[in-house]
Design a protein around this nucleic acid. Sequence first.
DNA 1: CTGTTAGCGCCTTCAG
DNA 2: CTGAAGGCGCTAACAG
Lengths: 346, 346
Amino acid sequence: MGILGPVNMREIARRAGVSCATVSRVLSGSSLVREDTAKKVRDVVSEAGFIPNPSAAMLKYGRSRTYGLVLPDLQNPFFGEFVGAFEDLLIDIDHEVLPISVQTSDKLVKSVRRMLMRQVDGAVLVSSEFDTGAVEPLLLRQIPLVTVDRRTVQIGCSDVSIDYELGFVEAVQHLKTLGHKRIGYIGGTKGPHTSEVRANAFEQAIRGAGLTFYPGLTRRGNYQVTGGEAAVVSLMKTSAPPTAIITANDLTALGAALGIHRLGLVVPRDLSIVGVDDLFLSEVVQPPLTTIRIPRKRLATACLQAMNYTKQNLERIGAEFSVPTQLIVRESTARPKSAPKKKSKR
Amino acid sequence: MGILGPVNMREIARRAGVSCATVSRVLSGSSLVREDTAKKVRDVVSEAGFIPNPSAAMLKYGRSRTYGLVLPDLQNPFFGEFVGAFEDLLIDIDHEVLPISVQTSDKLVKSVRRMLMRQVDGAVLVSSEFDTGAVEPLLLRQIPLVTVDRRTVQIGCSDVSIDYELGFVEAVQHLKTLGHKRIGYIGGTKGPHTSEVRANAFEQAIRGAGLTFYPGLTRRGNYQVTGGEAAVVSLMKTSAPPTAIITANDLTALGAALGIHRLGLVVPRDLSIVGVDDLFLSEVVQPPLTTIRIPRKRLATACLQAMNYTKQNLERIGAEFSVPTQLIVRESTARPKSAPKKKSKR
DNA sequence: CTGTTAGCGCCTTCAG
DNA sequence: CTGAAGGCGCTAACAG
């Protein structure tokens, strides 16, 4: 079974009575080794519990078999779930993921440094700000880049966009069918481009459905519970509050639901709420949240695809990929209470 | 600024007109370099954006500056939060964390292999099953180990126990004060030792408070929402259901709350619920969950402490550390509805 | 088919 | 104070 201390290849070679090269060949599955020799080597390897040192290989090849994954906030369960999905994909190709959470305070610069240290073979930047200066070192070193929802490509950098437009249209249609006319929106923070993308998708969906877009029913959140709560309170205090809102993500929606509750109101009777993400907790809360699902697996797959494309076309402009979203109707949306009354003017 | 392709030390040395050794000395802060030479080198280093390749250093030293962190389930937000806390600690000492989720299906063996590959300097096993055979290779290679809630130590392996006893006593006291007498429990899966620890802590707390321990009001969950829901339904169908329950973790508690809701009942009117963990979502759900908080930072700190102890006493039996818990009272617990009626026999 | 050799980038003696 | 040289473990040429 096991052994004491780290065993190296030379030691394995010695025990098997062959040279390191032969051991290396056996391990890499080369067919240029006689079967009985190979078997002998394999026996020694497994008997010693030998595991090759990847640092050595990396030193030789300059490839680390790991991809950096820059996320805005690992506290948000969505990103945790996404990391898991991405990791599963990488395991199949024997790679690793280096997840890096770029909190508000630290700069992207530091995470870039960390990736450079770990010699990542590529980096995926999810919904984060794209500070050209900060990622410069990556580009200069020819490290393939993939952004999510930046909706811009450049040499050595592809983009995967999440099709919010699709989900928002479905959501607005859903609300319209229920009878909502005054639909509000609680967005994300100012920095990341995805905030604008989501806000625009909302406005377009509203107009596309033939409804009125009320700028006064729009608020900025922070992608967290706190932001959703504060925004919904502000929204409900207006003279003509919305009967339904869509939020930039589920955490914001959960915050909004909390705010409504604290106001002594109830969801969906007093306000219908639609989130974005579909956290696995969203179907567990009361009421279960109607939300626009971002499919993690498809997103992860698209990122990997984009990565491969970029890698193979490093000299060229990156490609654009897209991932669909899907409305999941649960119980946080219902017919507006006020609407019928207003209509039936008796 | 940046440069093209990976730059190595020799190149820096060349540009600065010195040798690699001098560059190395400057980078490691050796004082044996003339200040003007050092400055010259530092300028070239920062101008080239040079970052030393840790693989080379690792190859030399055999230390990877990373710790493995084996968790039962990264889907559970508690572990995500814990990884973050542990990582923060490691950043300060310039180390990294390799988080590994050991799902039900895969075996611990595989994760051990992954850690061996990455040449971790140590491993923390959180609330997982401790298969002696599987971790043997770690022990044999003299890799310091820390377990959480295994409550056993051995050569080269320390333990950090979470003081559930404390939290459960507080929780039972809280429920007793509210007037509860029939308190049930929904536990964890059979494998990990922590399940027994939590179950025993519950039973002792009940008896310690002078209440009756009803084995019939005990169920097994799976640390997930589904388990909590199924268990609570089963519990409420008994002829004499509990008026309050304590669950093995917050996810289970959330599941229980969901189950109660589906049964057409309401928390805490029909059943008071106490969780364990204090997920950041637990204060956001309706009703906010009363729960026994496991402080992540303190747990992470204790793990690191334990790791350092083990490392410095590899030949000796590990030490035992403990982390306290704390009851957080919110709104999922209240006076039982039935109790007063039963008492006032009129 | 198998062994020998050189070198990946860094650090650390040992000389100068 | 600074330079030259060797070696960490592995692999890919190149010999045999």
